[in-house]
């Protein structure tokens, strides 16, 4: 009897099929990335050097961490967090402020990440209790937040002799020191969303909020965790950013906004929520971070960068949407 039942209710394992789909995305992205590197090397053989490796991995640090935060929001059905760069900047400004106050390192790190988290809490209150669409909330708070930062801080200089600047410029095991937190976060996010119960809840809420609610998951709690979590990850990026830049300005965030969204969309995260792989995200961040350096080697000025990134984003979202339409069979 039990065998009969188990046969009758045998359904194809969902997790496995999703995994093979993610593997295809990862392979395609790797292929494109290698193609980009190969044509750059054919064009200029000195592309394969320590200097380019350093430039690319430094590029990856901040974009990678922010992309994990953005991926967190996207996978949980929060559409997009357009204010994630503001949480990054809040944390970088607070890092400098706390450093000037003479706080010790752990207190400084926790303090500035929590300040970013408070901003995320503000976002989530607007989303959960006023029921405003997160896209509008984060558009408005990102816009207003930039203004507030400019009025409150204007700009801050990072002491070049501080450990913060040292952290941003030093190397550890041949990679930039700041690269390692990004790599660890990627692996952590991968296991969290794949194997932990709490992580699966985010996927469930993102995939279908109504059935997640019927399952007994509190939507409010998940939404608050999503936006606070994304802001906390933005806060981690903020500390790295403080290490990279000698002078922090409130308009610095605009540079990162687009590559981060492009990375998430390219990695196959559905803007509708519920699907995406953080390993693929790592590869797409690597690919996007290689573009600026490759452009320089092709003799194009860096102003071409935003132009090309913009159109990569349009193409990526078009492909993403087309894939969904095709899967539904229209």
């Amino acid at each position: 009897m039990s065998r009969l039942l188990s046969n009758r209710f045998k359904v194809p394992s969902l997790r496995k099929s999703a995994d093979s789909e993610y593997l295809a995305t990862i392979l395609v992205l790797l292929g494109v990335w290698i193609f980009l590197i190969v044509i750059s090397v054919i064009n200029r053989s000195d592309f394969l050097s320590r200097a380019t490796f350093g430039a690319i991995t430094f590029n990856m640090c901040i974009i990678g961490v922010l992309a994990i935060g953005q991926g967190f929001v996207v996978i949980s059905g929060g559409i997009l967090d357009l204010s994630i760069t503001v949480s990054m900047l809040i944390s970088s400004f607070m890092t400098v402020v706390f450093y000037e106050l003479g706080w010790n390192t752990p207190a400084l790190i926790i303090g500035s990440i929590l300040c970013a988290g408070a901003f995320g809490l503000f976002n989530s209150i607007l989303v959960v209790w006023l029921k405003i669409n997160p896209l509008i909330v984060t558009l408005a708070t990102g816009f207003a937040g930039g203004g507030v930062l400019l009025i409150v801080f204007d700009r801050k200089l990072v002491d070049p002799k501080s450990w913060i600047a040292d952290f941003g410029t030093s190397y550890l095991f041949r990679f930039p020191t700041a690269w390692w937190p990004m790599a660890l976060l990627t692996i952590g996010a991968h296991f969290f969303f794949k194997y932990s119960r709490f992580g699966r809840h985010f996927l469930a809420v993102g995939g279908n909020p109504l059935s997640a609610k019927a399952m007994g998951i509190s939507l409010k709690r998940m939404r608050v965790s999503t936006f606070v979590g994304a802001a906390l990850i933005g806060g981690i990026a903020g500390i790295i950013f403080a290490g990279f830049t000698p002078e922090i300005r409130p308009n610095a965030g605009t540079y990162y906004m687009l590559p981060v969204i492009a990375a998430v969309v390219l990695a196959g995260f559905s803007l509708a929520g519920g699907r995406g792989s953080f390993l693929a995200l790592f590869v797409s961040v690597g690919f996007l971070s290689t573009i600026p350096t490759a452009l320089v080697f092709f003799g194009l000025k860096s102003i071409w960068e935003t132009f090309i990134q913009g159109f990569i984003l349009i193409i990526a979202v078009s492909i993403d949407a087309y894939r969904i339409v095709k899967a539904r069979g229209r």
Binding site: L80, L135, M257, L258, I261, A262, V265, L271, K301, I303, W304, E305, T306, F307, I308, Q309, G310, F311, I312, L313, I314, V317, S318, I319, D320, A321, Y322, I324, V325
Partner: peptide, 23 residues
């Protein structure tokens, strides 16, 4: 034609065109 999310697609266009204007 492709059914892309209007906000994401035109955000890309925003940044792309700003870059083009600068060029």
């Amino acid at each position: 034609v492709f059914g892309a999310n209007p906000i994401a697609a035109t955000l890309g266009m925003l940044v792309g065109l700003r870059g083009l204007a600068r060029i």
